[in-house]
Amino acid sequence: MNGGSLLRLEGVHKWFGENHVLRGIDLEIVPQEVLAVIGPSGSGKSTLLRTMNLLEEPNEGRVWFEDTELTDVRTNLNKVRTHLGIVFQAFNLFPHKTAVQNITLALHKVLGLGNEEAGERAMQELRHVGMEHKANEYPGRLSGGQQQRVAIARALAMRPKVMLFDEVTSALDPELIQEVLDVMKRLAEEGMTMVVVTHEMGFAREAANKMVFMDEGQIVEKGDPRAMFDRPGNERLRKFLSRIL
């Protein structure tokens, strides 16, 4: 049925009121794929990403995760979402919990892990993103880059099969962007399946193995990132690249 794909979108449409944000998206993500989604602001990139774990419900079309149709009302989304990690532009750490508590909360309450196991796994993921020394700090005392790394660790601790990144460096000061990108690059090298909505063209070029260019709610072009950067086939992509590079 799914032909080996992890995530599949079929004819997805989304309206916000009169605003037709996604206009018929078909997309497939296979294991170990690192898919970069680029495009001008307002082109629907973030909305597309958020339909992948149904934070945004499509008005039309279907979304599949492995053999489960997320757009089927009978699907238990809470269960599926544990396999789909997402990291947000605004971090969205829980400010009343320390870094390690941010991670263990869902391990306890959703996966039902015991104190010891949850704590161990949380520390393991904090080490993974180089944040073990701040385990007991509250988010308010961490820099943006550090908060974002904790947010990545929080998502990773659920042991997801896909990681979704929603412009995760856009809210960061320039000098803090690299530490987050480094973590993401390492994840890509480790074989994590990733969908990355980004304005970081360098990251898209180096770390992604597939790229889509979106404009006005549609996927205009998709292919190999290097090829798309070096020989943009489409006029709109060429214009977009010439404006930002």
Binding site: N78, A90, L105, V110
Partner: peptide
């Protein structure tokens, strides 16, 4: 409370009451 807090919790697999 910012909308992102609810989204973060739900995307970790928590139910609405959780």
């Amino acid at each position: 409370i910012e909308r992102g807090q609810m989204e973060a919790a739900r995307s970790l697999g928590m139910s609405y009451p959780q």
